[in-house]
Design a protein around this nucleic acid. Structure first.
Length: 809
RNA sequence: GCCGAAGUGGCGGAAUAGGCAGACGCAAGGGACUUAAAAUCCCUCGGUUGCAAGACCGUAUCGGUUCGAGUCCGAUCUCCGGCACCA
């Protein structure tokens, strides 16, 4: 078969017939199937794109054949750093390269023969889109979910620029390899932490990979504990957060983060110089290093003492860089006897170590003892278990207002400003009189200017565009400056799935009623690397927009699948430097896009991925040719055999069990086993053909037709062509996906295994109508089974219907 | 260090819900067709042992539960992914 020719032929036909046009009138039975949109990088579509999009499209086709109105859009995540970095290297403007790449990729995606309805395309770098990204920013601001504060960011001293977290690899700049340092800048944040609890609770109801849910759960990191107030002798007070309030009697010091606002105030004059020097030093250490567990603990005494509220004991106040200002209260209590870090710290600085918990069974345990146990040396709390004491001690403090139960999250607010050019401008104007003023909605979009020098020099590139920067304050009319930062690209991708169904809307980001009908996405397919970024942000946006009244559902993606990674033939990740990159274009040229897609579905477990094999793709080509010859046989066959005998019954059984398992496997993204079942059906049809070379029963041709229909989602052009060759005049995608005939699946006899003492000794055909006792009697009445038992005493018989009988002697 | 997932033939990978391990494919071997080769069609294909029927072993390792374990439980080893001073 001339693959190239038939691909062109059917793609043209589909296009002319608008075969995959989405019909909004039919949304009652819709399926929203969505693949994570792609980044329009310079290179062409790689195997990874195909692996994401090919099998997913087959799933969409499968749903379409089952009668659903499938909404299957495609678009581009077009803002972002790679285009900008490429521009810095080559001088080609990001806008030019991006939109050129999009054209190329659109063409390539069309060549896949996928069912995308391009009418619904979304491009995030298009002002028709980012206008609404900016609008959402303003809504978040209005709702108190966007705010500005000073925060440390990743700074590359060599590139003279801020880097996104994703650009920091093991503490180094991804581009030049320099060590990244921290730098404080005033930044915009989204208050995702307001939704920490709901983001956590909502995971339970989602049909997502457990691993991904767990990653989000750990990322959100909810922990239960108490906040306890310590008062310094000089009068100030501060709170510490602890999950082990039960160890409060064992506190021998307290520690503040170097950035804690009280540090300067409570440090005694004689310690001031040393403390200031320590604080300055920690500022120089880069974040990665500071947070490294391998680093030796260091700290410094402030000269101040605080009172432990439970026993009135005076304990020294330290500062140490292992305490994070951004978590909890930025202060912790030190209990060396029951915490490993505190133990090391106490040893180093000669602080007392006093046991307040022992193991419940009283067995000898060394300090630091971090397990749960029973309180000792804790006054009237002695004898309480850890779980009891944690609560009781906080409750005791609560009476004097010195403590309360508290929940903390690891999740931090989302830093969304970027000192970069190629992104959506943040719609804010800074006025000397009115402060940070939101751009009025009627003035959106704030267009990203084209002529900007984006060579990195440590400042936001937009600052250099006077034309962009200088505006009048929308409130008082005084000369003012625009916000020069742009939004993180993850902001753009946090709501694109909401825009797809209503992508032409000029009045709103999307129409509420319409979007409530179309969303949530029924099946979302994309890489696992987005577990704690895009997939979390999109959930946050959905919930925030719901609370603002723009939509009425809680979760954007009901069901999620991660595809695996296709490796090079040598088992390594494909990379130019290893020379193991498989080019989809060349492979397709040689074998056709259907074969390429079919191999991607057959050669791997979809969620695992694995190494590419040239032999593998040849094997699916062989399979397709086998099917093609079968179709030729079916077209030419003499179907006058009227006798519906054992062979026909068997063939029909295999045909129906193939329909059953292929349907189930397609549903579960078990593509490799689905193809295997089709191969089995093909083998059975060959066997039938071999035994009945001259005249065949009509069931042969019917089974071949079903085979073609079952294959259609995987090899669309090929299936259309075969369907036509068998006289079909209607596209396979307008035909109903095969449905099983239950009666064909019930056999008169089933083969079961006969075990003696749990070892298989024989196979036996048993009438399938028999119940358990019937099977026992039938089996024992068979001479060959009786011979195996040979008169021994039968202690027990286990029967598993349709599978086995186990005779215990 | 903590959390999680995985470990099955020469290879890629299958095994609803604890029930015949190795589906399907690749590679390999054999046969048919052919002057020959390719292609195609058919058969064999975990290991040891046996003339054979068969017997024994076998899902990383060790132990356990069970009539029965790749699957469940406990420990160990290896590889991968995530988090990494979160108090």
């Amino acid at each position: 078969m001339d693959y190239k020719k038939i691909e062109k032929k059917w793609q043209k036909k589909w296009k002319d017939e608008k075969a995959y046009k989405f019909d909004p009138e039919k949304v009652g039975e819709k399926k929203y199937v969505l693949e994570m949109f792609s980044y329009p990088s310079g290179a062409k579509l790689h195997v990874g794109h195909w692996y994401n999009y090919g099998p997913s499209d087959s799933y969409a086709r499968f749903k379409r054949m089952q009668g659903y109105e499938v909404f299957h859009p495609m678009g581009f995540d077009a803002f972002g750093l790679p285009a900008e970095n490429y521009a810095i290297k080559t001088g080609i403007h990001p806008k030019d390269s991006t939109f050129k790449n999009i054209k190329t990729m659109e063409k390539q995606l069309k060549a896949i023969g996928a069912t995308y309805d391009w009418n619904y395309e979304v491009i995030t770098a298009d002002s028709k889109y980012y206008r609404w990204t900016q609008w959402i920013f303003l809504q978040l601001l209005k709702a108190g979910l966007a705010y500005r504060k000073e925060a440390p960011v990743n700074w590359c001293p060599s590139c003279q620029t801020v880097l996104a977290n994703e650009q920091v690899k093991d503490g180094d700049c991804e581009r030049c390899g320099s060590v990244v340092v921290r730098k404080n800048l005033t930044q915009w944040f989204f208050k995702i932490t307001d939704y920490a609890d709901e983001l956590l609770a909502g995971l339970d109801g989602l049909d997502w990979p457990e691993k991904t849910k767990l990653m989000q759960k750990n990322w959100i990191g909810k922990s239960y504990g108490g906040e306890i107030e310590f008062t310094v002798l000089t009068g100030q007070s501060f709170k510490v957060f602890t999950t082990r309030a039960d160890t409060l009697f064992g506190v021998s010091y307290v520690v503040l983060a170097p950035e804690h606002p009280l540090v300067a105030k409570l440090t005694t004059p004689d310690r001031a110089a040393a403390v200031a020097a320590y604080v300055a030093d920690t500022g120089k250490v880069n974040e990665i290093e500071r947070l490294s567990t391998a680093r030796e603990k260091s700290g410094i005494f402030t000269g101040a003492y605080a009172i432990n509220p439970i026993n009135g004991r005076k304990v020294p106040v330290y500062i140490a860089d292992y305490v994070l200002a951004s978590y909890g209260t930025g202060a912790v209590m030190g209990v060396p006897s029951h915490d490993e870090r505190d133990f090391i710290f106490a040893k180093k600085y000669g602080l007392p170590i006093e046991r307040v918990v022992k193991s419940a069974d009283g067995s000898a345990d060394e300090l630091p003892y971090v397990e749960y146990g029973v309180n000792v040396n804790s006054g009237r709390f002695d004898g309480l278990t850890t779980d009891e004491a944690k609560i009781a001690i906080v409750q005791e403090l609560q009476k004097n207002g010195k403590g309360e139960l508290k929940t903390n999250y690891r999740l931090r607010d989302w830093l969304v400003s970027r000192q970069r050019y190629w992104g959506a401008p943040i719609p804010i104007i800074h006025c000397p009189h009115c402060g940070a003023v939101p751009v009025p909605e009627k003035d959106l979009p704030v267009l990203l200017p084209y002529n900007v020098d984006f060579t990195p020099d440590g400042k936001s590139p937009l600052l250099k565009s006077d034309e962009f920067m200088n505006v009048k304050c929308p409130v008082c009319g005084a000369p003012a400056k625009r916000e020069p930062d742009t939004l993180d690209t993850f902001v753009c991708s946090s709501w694109y799935f909401l825009r797809y169904p209503d992508n032409k809307n000029k009045k709103k980001a999307f129409d509420g009623d319409w979007i409530n009908k179309m969303l949530p996405v029924d099946k979302y397919i994309g890489g696992a690397e987005h577990a704690c970024m895009h997939l979390l942000y999109a959930r946050f946006f959905t919930k925030a927009l719901r609370d603002m009244g723009y939509l009425n559902f809680d979760e954007p993606f009901l069901s999620l699948v991660h595809q695996g990674l296709i490796l090079g033939p040598d088992g390594n990740k494909m990379s130019k430097s290893l020379g193991n990159v498989v080019s989809p274009d060349e492979t397709i040229k040689k074998y056709g896009s259907d074969a390429f897609r079919l191999y991607l579905m057959f050669g791997f477990s979809y969620i695992e991925g694995g190494p590419w094999s040239d032999k593998g793709i040849e094997s699916v080509v062989r399979f397709m040719e086998r099917v093609e010859r079968l179709a030729q046989k079916a077209a030419a066959a003499d179907l006058s055999k009227s006798d519906y005998g054992k062979e026909e019954k068997e063939l029909n059984y295999i045909r129906n069990s193939a329909i059953k398992s292929v349907t189930r496997d397609m549903e579960a993204f078990g593509f490799n086993t689905a193809v295997a079942r089709l191969m089995e059906l093909t083998n059975a049809l060959y066997a039938y053909d071999n035994r009945n070379p001259d005249i065949k029963h009509a069931v042969f041709k019917a089974a071949v037709k079903d085979l073609i229909l079952l294959m259609a989602p995987m090899t669309p052009h090929f299936a259309e062509e075969l369907n036509e060759s068998l006289g079909g005049t209607v596209s396979v995608f307008k035909q109903r996906y095969p449905v099983i005939d239950e009666s064909a699946l019930t056999l008169d006899e089933v083969e079961i295994a006969v075990q003696i003492n749990s070892r298989v000794k024989a196979k036996l055909n048993v009438p399938s109508a028999l119940d358990e006792n019937g099977v026992k009697e039938f089996a024992l009445s068979q001479p060959q089974i009786a011979a195996l038992v040979s008169g021994a005493e039968i202690k027990k018989i286990v029967v598993v219907p349709k599978r086995l009988i186990n005779i215990i002697l």
